[in-house]
Amino acid sequence: MRRRTFRGAVAIMALTTAALIGTAGSALACVPGDDRAEGTVGNATKCSDIGLGKAIDVSDLLEVTGGTNKDQYLTVKSVPKGVTVAAIVVKGGNEYNTYRPGKKGLPATPPWEKLHAPMVGKNFQNVPAISHWFACGSKTETPPESTVTTKPTKPTETTKPSAPASSETTVAPTSTTGAAVVPAGNESGTGGGLANTGFDNMWLVWIAALLILGGGGLLALLKFRRKASE
């Protein structure tokens, strides 16, 4: 009984050791082929498989080239606004590479070029075709743009300066109507028929009359003396 127990224990230890060696060999056999990636033996199809259970699949939101089962490489050209990428998984064969932006030399922002699965073939020199890939991350919902339009305010009315008061007194225009004609007659009380020129000139008439009378008398006297002397 003791020999059977001992043999059974030895068999179990041998099987366990073989399993461990096989696992270690598989782990050592995974060659990422890219210093930016972390290689893993096995399969991964969702974010929880790589320890990102709270992340969401954002693969469809990225702008990429390649990545089909006919391609060996995947290039992420851009990430839309509001999307954050935490990891990108690229699988081929029985292994996959995990790329994490901002780690192991991979830039924090795209473009992320020539991402691929772990190496295969003799001496691990070949890049396998991609069986599938996916990206894990988060998305921030952007609020819709406000459609409220602000009415333009009316410009402030400015008070026009009042016209300065004129210091000059407006003089009514002088009537251009001619002076009234003075009717003939005794307008000035002189009894003459002369037109009134605005001043009394009757004394000139009296002086003229006296001179005429004096001249006539002088002529009569001279004529009388001439006759007396004959």
Rank of each mutant, 00 (worst) to 15 (best):
G51R: 12
G192N: 11
V89S: 04
G216D: 00
R226Q: 13
K223T: 06
T84L: 04
E141G: 10
A172L: 10
R100Q: 12
G53T: 09
L222N: 12
L194T: 10
S59L: 13
S167W: 07
P111E: 02
P164Q: 13
T153K: 08
A87C: 05
T156I: 13
G193V: 15
V85G: 01
A11F: 14
D35P: 03
G137Y: 03
A209I: 15
E145A: 01
G39F: 00
I212S: 05
D71A: 07
S78F: 09
V64E: 03
K154T: 15
P183H: 02
N196Y: 10
A44G: 09
N123E: 07
T169G: 07
W203N: 07
N186G: 13
P110I: 00
P107A: 05
S59H: 13
C136T: 05
S131F: 02
E38S: 14
R100W: 05
L52D: 03
T150C: 08
S48Y: 05
N201D: 08
F124D: 07
G67V: 06
T140L: 02
C30A: 10
T45Y: 04
A117S: 02
K160H: 13
K227C: 01
P152M: 15
T149P: 02
E145G: 00
R225W: 15
G121H: 04
R100L: 12
T177L: 09
T197Y: 08
A135W: 04
N69L: 14
E145F: 00
N186D: 15
E113Q: 04
T98M: 07
G93M: 03
L210M: 09
T169W: 11
V205W: 14
L211C: 09
V64Y: 04
L213G: 02
G192S: 12
A27L: 12
I88W: 03
L218A: 06
G51F: 03
W112D: 00
G51V: 05
A44Y: 03
E168V: 14
A220G: 06
G214K: 04
L219H: 10
S167P: 04
G191F: 07
G178P: 11
A172D: 10
S166C: 09
G51W: 05
S162F: 06
K81G: 08
A87M: 02
E141I: 04
L61R: 14
S48M: 10
P101A: 02
T84F: 05
G217I: 08
F6V: 15
H132A: 14
F124L: 06
L115P: 00
G121S: 05
G92T: 02
K154N: 11
S188T: 12
M1L: 13
A135V: 07
A220M: 11
I88S: 03
Q72V: 03
P173V: 08
T174Y: 11
P161S: 06
P155G: 10
E230T: 13
Y73I: 04
P111T: 01
G137H: 00
S175D: 13
P101R: 00
A44M: 08
G217Y: 07
K46D: 06
A27I: 14
V181M: 04
A24P: 03
E187C: 10
G102I: 11
T17H: 06
L62A: 02
K54G: 09
L20T: 11
I212D: 02
A165N: 13
G178A: 12
P128I: 02
N94H: 03
I50A: 05
N201W: 13
A195Q: 11
